[in-house]
């Protein structure tokens, strides 16, 4: 009984320390020193939120650069993937369909140049990035739809390519939302 009582007391003390004090102290400091990061790296335009730097969104029209496949349609109130096993027939069916869709929308670019990140579901369903090659192969389509010369789009992709971290870690990426924001600005000129 004495063991039970001290267990209860110590549990409540630790719940207060680790559950409340730790979390609130971290929140307070983070919000004071790094409010933009701590609030989700939101991108605002004229007081309206257009998204987050870190969260992908759906792009379907030919005039945008497209992100990765997302079985949840980039619904960021949740996250998820279909978790297809490599042997799952549905995965093959989807990959076949992606090939047909690609050829219909990008007649100038052969499949052999399309990297796999463009035709696979990301881990989160919210991947904000594609590979630089994944962006480059979309240039002919975007150029045709927007009238922006291909050379200018190539520069745009180049400028929005983030290198490996410290030149070493991870993969080079292109943030699709930021690229498309820049694209929209270029198109309005």
């Amino acid at each position: 009984m004495q063991l039970f009582a001290s267990s209860l007391r110590i549990s409540l003390v630790l719940m207060l320390l680790c559950g409340v004090v730790y979390n609130l102290a971290a929140t307070g400091i983070a919000q004071t020193l790094m409010p933009h990061r701590a609030s989700g790296s939101l991108i605002e335009e004229d007081g309206r939120i257009v998204g987050s730097e870190l969260i992908g969104q759906t792009f379907t029209e030919p005039r945008w650069f497209h992100g990765r496949l997302s079985s949840i349609g980039y619904a960021a109130d949740g996250s998820g993937t279909p978790n297809y096993a490599p042997s799952n027939p549905d995965l093959l069916e989807r990959a076949r369909q992606s090939a047909l869709d690609w050829q219909a929308a990008n007649p100038d670019v052969p499949l052999s140049e399309v990297p796999l990140d463009l035709v696979t579901n990301s881990g989160s369903g919210l991947d904000p990035d594609i590979s630089p090659q994944g962006a480059r192969v979309q240039i002919p389509r975007v150029s045709a739809a927007t009238g922006i010369p291909q050379a200018e789009l190539e520069q745009l992709v180049e400028r929005h390519t983030a290198p490996r971290r410290l030149g070493l870690f991870g993969e080079p990426t292109v943030n699709v939302l930021e690229l498309n924001l820049a694209l929209r600005e270029a198109a309005s000129k």
Binding site: S112, V114, L116, N121, I130
Partner: peptide
């Protein structure tokens, strides 16, 4: 199917990690 499969098994993986 004819893709450029140099990235390896990308289903369920994030671009930034590869």
């Amino acid at each position: 199917l004819g893709y450029d499969s140099g990235q390896g098994s990308m289903e369920g993986k994030e671009t930034r990690f590869g």
